Amino acid sequence: MSFYTSLTGLKNAQTDLGVISHNIANAETSGFKKSRTNFADIVAVSILTDPSLTTGIGSRVASITQEMSLGPIEQTGNALDVAINGEGLFTTKAPLSGTTQFTRAGSFSVDGNGFITNASSNRLQLFPVNAAGVITSTTSTVDALVPATNAAGADFAGVSVNDDGAVIASYADGSNTSIGVIALADFIAPNGLKQIGNSNWEATGISGAPTYGQPSTSQYGTLLSGAVERSNVDISEELVGLITAQRYFQANAKAIDTATQISQTIINLRT
């Protein structure tokens, strides 16, 4: 029994090492959120078991949770680099599948078709606005599309994002046009979001459905233009965790070695 009990500890240590290694590998990934391994003990009892003589039979991984705390903000000067100072995630859509994805990595650019996209080529989602720049709907979103020319026929000259999320396109004749307001998403249980890579998440039944809002309103954070949010991984903390996980693995391996020696001693009693 002691062999299998220690084996669960070895497997847990391997899982912990994997999670910590993943965190360290993404220490420089913009918008990345570190994970933490949570363990639970395993106890097998019946109605006839004496509670004072109950012996545990090992441990298991209870969950691997994401820590959604804010990472350091890095100034870049790029007008389409946007960081969220507070709650919320950017909403994007994959152009081919139409899948809605969420991210904290706010490094955007304008593609050849005029769409504002992230590194995964997903299109940033905006609340639609009227000619005066007033939001017309907060229940639906549209792709962020920058017209190549304005109503007067002037060519596109640049784009910027205001603190309130308004995306402003500038044209060669000196005019400015609001193409929409960035839609931030929030969840009842953000730890339940499904990681799909590239600092993107998808909603699940655990996270609940997203609620959308404008930056700087209610629980939604403010936007910082010309900046990106770095990974919230603390290298020093992870290295200490790495040492702890290594000791955890060694201790369980030593327990197996000790159990082997005891078994060998018992066997040798007959010889």
Rank of each mutant, 00 (worst) to 15 (best):
A154Y: 06
A154H: 06
A154L: 06
D155V: 15
D155E: 15
F156M: 07
F156G: 03
A157R: 13
A157N: 13
A157M: 07
A157Y: 10
A157Q: 14
G158T: 02
G158A: 08
G158F: 02
V159T: 12
V159M: 10
V159G: 04
S160K: 10
S160N: 11
S160L: 09
S160M: 06
S160E: 11
V161R: 02
N162V: 03
N162M: 10
D164W: 02
A166N: 09
A166C: 03
V167P: 00
V167C: 02
V167I: 03
I168K: 11
I168Q: 12
A169S: 07
A169N: 07
Y171F: 12
A172Q: 13
A172P: 05
A172C: 10
A172T: 14
D173R: 12
G174H: 10
S175L: 04
T177I: 13
T177L: 13
S178G: 06
S178E: 13
I179C: 06
I179D: 05
G180S: 04
G180R: 01
V181F: 01
V181T: 09
V181W: 00
V181E: 06
V181P: 00
I182A: 01
I182S: 00
L184S: 00
A185Y: 00
A185S: 11
D186N: 14
D186R: 11
D186S: 14
F187T: 03
F187D: 00
I188E: 15
A189Y: 15
A189V: 14
A189K: 14
N191V: 09
N191W: 05
G192E: 06
L193H: 03
L193N: 02
L193Q: 01
K194H: 13
K194A: 15
Q195F: 11
Q195V: 13
Q195L: 12
Q195I: 10
Q195W: 12
I196T: 11
G197R: 07
G197M: 05
N198K: 11
S199M: 06
S199H: 04
S199K: 04
S199F: 01
S199Y: 03
S199D: 08
S199N: 14
W201A: 08
E202K: 13
E202Y: 05
A203H: 05
A203S: 14
A203C: 02
T204L: 10
I206K: 15
S207H: 09
S207A: 10
G208M: 02
G208D: 00
A209G: 12
A209V: 10
A209Q: 13
P210Y: 05
P210S: 07
T211S: 15
T211E: 13
T211D: 12
Y212R: 07
Y212K: 04
Y212I: 03
G213D: 06
Q214I: 08
